[in-house]
Design a protein around this nucleic acid. Structure first.
Lengths: 152, 152
DNA sequence: CTCATATAGATTGATATCAATATAATGGCG
DNA sequence: CGCCATTATATTGATATCAATCTATATGAG
């Protein structure tokens, strides 16, 4: 008689669902991203693009690798993420003077202008989220503040 | 004289970088996903596929919409995410008896077997993460436990 | 019963994500 | 000087993600 399959008890599934930090984090990240994406839509940016542009607003234009590190993203992801912004001329890249392997990424005037437009939206949205999460206060230790208050 | 561009002070950039919950969450989610993906690689699953398969391990096969809701993902994302699993015959879909708009998704024997293989990996990896984050203990309130201990 | 509306999923198009791999420039060592 | 190991980025291929839109089914008003 063929074994029907190695059974994982339903209780285990519930345990994983309730305790997997990775799952909680992914869920929370998706939900929060949707929220910021919707808020930033009027200026035509996603949450990731906003973070990316903001990370470029510094005295000395950073190199690709530095940006990837700050955002904790794969450098190949960054290369891809940069393309739409280059196309829209919100950023520009030029080889580093000293080390021509590196490329320095800088905001254009248009990029700075758009970022300035987006900033108040970020402030508002962030304040809303804070308010939503403030509620019970208490410790934050639990599964990502109850997975961002049951998915915002 | 042309305004060169609306300037956002560098301090504002630093403030956003240090306080944006969305950014912290995205960074942490990316880092943790990479970690679980690497650990699960031997069984050929990503963290998302593992969570998805696990969410299907229940007495009554859930409908697509229910799964999407549990995972806090867009239902169209779920449709796409299901494709590789269908192709590998780890899951199967069939229309709901009562409501033929709905589709119920079930693990196949192969899916259950693979999930059983993956479970110990999940346990190990999760224990490692817990250990990494346990350190200072303290409150969790700060930016996602210091963005998952400075990105794991 | 019939049509209008609502609901469940699927498709399309754009971007995001990473591993594996490729290209290019540095820098040290002989 | 000339190689080679290293470093910085780009390319490719697969999956993930969502908004907008479409199809099929269900449900309620008349």
């Amino acid at each position: 008689m063929m074994s029907t399959a190695p059974e994982i008890p339903f209780e285990t599934t519930l345990f994983v669902r309730d305790h997997c930090l990775c799952l909680h984090l992914q869920r929370a990240a998706r939900a929060l991203a949707r929220r910021f994406d919707a808020a930033l839509k009027p200026v035509g940016l996603t949450n990731g693009q906003f973070s990316l542009l903001m990370s470029l607003n510094r005295p000395q234009p950073p190199r690709m690798g530095e940006v990837a590190s700050v955002l904790a993203m794969d450098s190949t992801t960054l290369t891809a993420a940069m393309k739409p912004l280059l196309r829209r001329a919100l950023v520009e890249m030029r080889p580093d003077e000293k080390d021509r392997r590196s490329r320095r990424v800088a905001l254009t005037d248009a990029g700075r202008a758009l970022l300035a437009e987006a900033l108040p939206i970020w402030r508002e949205t962030h304040a809303e989220i804070d308010a939503l999460l403030a509620g019970v206060g208490a410790g934050d230790g639990e599964p990502l503040r109850q997975t961002l208050r049951a998915i915002l």
